[in-house]
């Protein structure tokens, strides 16, 4: 590989960038996304750590529960000083697995009661099942 051709991005990082339209390397790890995230308590990796894993090409990030816990509330996206849309990065990670046929939940296991709002079911279906 000639000098200048070196791309620090792993294949996974390139894929996430293509799907999300975001520059992963714009993130300078300030942690603002994680400090404001209402779901961070439920996560195994904080949102900024997910980005760091992607910057470093660590594929374990695909096994993290964080993208599935993210509910796309967009608090991170509003607060990011570098205008990185972290929620789109989470969506890209979900989509990579869903398009590979790896559903996050078995729909049959989801219990819908009479008073369950249909939009809860449809949103879950859209986010968890490919």
């Amino acid at each position: 590989m000639a000098n200048g051709d070196i791309n620090p991005r792993s294949e996974l990082a390139l894929k996430v960038e293509e799907l999300s339209g975001q520059n992963l390397f714009a993130c300078y790890q300030c942690g603002e996304c994680s400090s404001g995230c209402p779901m961070s308590q439920e996560m195994d990796l904080l949102p900024n750590q997910v980005i760091r894993y992607l910057q470093l090409g660590f594929e374990e990030v695909l096994g993290s529960k964080t993208p599935w816990v993210c509910s796309s509330c967009l608090t991170c996206m509003v607060r990011c000083p570098k205008d990185v849309d972290v929620a789109k990065i989470m969506e890209a990670l979900r989509v990579i697995k869903l398009r590979d046929g790896q559903n996050h939940v078995d729909l049959k296991a989801i219990r819908v009661e009479d008073d369950t709002p249909p939009l809860a079911f449809i949103s879950a279906l859209r986010k968890y099942v490919g």
Binding site: P38, M39, S72, V105, I110, A120, A124, K127
Partner: peptide, 20 residues
Amino acid sequence: TDECCGSYHVLEDPSIVRRK
């Protein structure tokens, strides 16, 4: 007022929605 309530997690992991 603008903190997420847990949204559609209510069907997959209601404990998240309960806490939020």
